[in-house]
Write a protein that binds this DNA or RNA. Structure first.
Lengths: 275, 275
DNA sequence: CAAAATACGTAACATACGATACAGCGCTCC
DNA sequence: GGAGCGCTGTATCGTATGTTACGTATTTTG
């Protein structure tokens, strides 16, 4: 059953020509506000011509544009009156494949942060913002992108940030560069990778401070880590979810940025002038 | 301070003539829907004449009726999207200090999925699971890790999955390998990268099906995309958040895996025996 | 109570909006 | 490679919509 125009669009998206699909996607992207404006504005936002917009609403089954707008307004009015029914997409009863995934992910995040105090985060951020040493980041098979993501941001706001990539032999040799003042950020969830554990141990022996992102079962690296962030990873899927760790990473990136700004780091001001 | 039109009306209600007050009360009664309709409908609902409505909005300080309607729409859009007003409903469960960053991120995810139907995701998953062509993934400066993450998973459950990395000249030449049956997954959020746009355009000309992950303002690549996923990226930080897109990516990975399992792909069974 | 000022609606007006006809273009299928 | 079809934008048209002028009704004030 189709109860909202958004659903109707999703349903017929496949049968639409390219330009009309652009219109549809533009509408969905900022649903439903664009649809309440004039045809001219709608078409400009979508980058198509006005007739295309009209053909688009015609395809959805409306006689004319005002009728289409009325429907949107009615829908909006209904939503405003019952905030509970705020969900645009129906709760996907029964065999819904998406919502359980999202719900689980959101739960994971809440749970992850519940076990993570502001102080912990602030401490780690302070460590990362302390620019007397270098920062190295590395991840496992599936978590390496998280290390990359974090490195991409940190490298902008401070110097000496290195993502360790490629073959094991490549980064193993970088151990020579690491010392007491340096920080090593490791992402490792099951199945924990032996190579990473060995690497972490050697780094630990050299006095490197290790920040570990892992799952709730804790990678063996936790043994060597100065800071451990345990994220929830369980979702109804064949794979584990790294989303909670991702959010923690983003939070940390934000916290480090803020601390450096507070310190009045010259680099930050320079960066902002460049943006 | 007056922040909404409703407040503005309440403020000046006392200074209004009888008919205009009727108009005001009618608007408040079913705020703000009546205001979005035509002057004629508004006047009929209030039981006054059209000029009275016009005088009413003029008294509120608007130059003309369309300007008044635009303000209402902006207000509505802000309500629909801002987490601030929504915190009225779920009063921040759990006690104490939850980072505003997390709250914003969770809202972004809910909002992103609110604009994303099961059917859309299923369609995209079906496209990715359709193994008659190759799959290429690429991302921008900060989103490339997302492309990597997705590639790392997809490459396991099916052949011919390629992450395009390195210098622009490197992947630009891969266009030669791309054709109608192939899929190109692009991650691009602002600031949108020209190189990616150009790449997408060329791929599009070759008939490649493009799946675009972008932010709510839509990368120009949306023009060429077969499927567009618009994620929310705003967080209280110096950086945009890719967390919502990350979760969508994970959801898609899960969906593709399930579809391939359902198809009874030999590869999947082999994989499972290896885990 | 008279006279003025304000409030309000009717009716004519101009504009901007949605709708339509048509031509150019690309694509698919013989 | 040619013919046909579907998609898309340009230009034009009719009209619904917001706007304004003006006359009547109502209230206010000396």
């Amino acid at each position: 059953m189709i109860s909202s125009i958004a659903e109707l669009i999703a349903d017929r998206l496949g049968t639409m020509p390219a330009s009309e699909r652009r219109a549809a996607q533009t509408l969905i992207a900022s649903y439903p506000m664009i649809g309440l404006k004039t045809v001219a504005e709608f078409s400009a936002a979508a980058g198509v011509s006005s007739p295309t917009i009209l053909r688009f609403v015609a395809r959805l089954g409306f006689q004319n544009y005002p009728e289409f707008q009325s429907s949107l307004q009615d829908e909006l009015a209904a939503q405003l009156q019952s905030p509970a029914t705020r969900t645009l997409n129906p709760p996907s009863p029964g065999g819904g494949t998406v919502s359980p995934m999202l719900e689980a992910t959101l739960d994971n995040m809440r749970e992850t942060f519940r076990h993570l105090s502001d102080k912990q985060l602030a401490d780690i951020a302070a460590r990362l913002a302390d620019r007397r040493g270098k920062t190295f980041l590395i991840g496992g098979r599936f978590t390496d992108p998280l290390a990359r993501y974090m490195a991409a941001h940190l490298a902008i706001i401070q110097p000496d940030v290195f993502h360790l990539a490629g073959q094991e032999s490549m980064w193993r040799d970088r151990l020579i560069d690491m010392g007491k003042r340096d920080v090593l950020v490791i992402f490792d969830i099951r199945r924990y990778q032996d190579s990473l554990v060995r690497f972490a141990e050697k780094a630990h022996q050299r006095g490197v401070q290790i920040v570990l992102f892992t799952d709730q079962w804790l990678s063996p690296i936790a043994r060597f880590a100065r800071h451990v962030i345990a994220g929830r990873t369980a979702v109804p899927s064949a794979w584990d979810s790294s989303a909670a760790l991702f959010v923690v990473a983003e939070t940390l990136i934000g916290a480090v940025t803020r601390q450096l700004e507070a310190k009045g780091a010259k680099r930050i001001r320079e960066m902002e002038s460049l943006r």
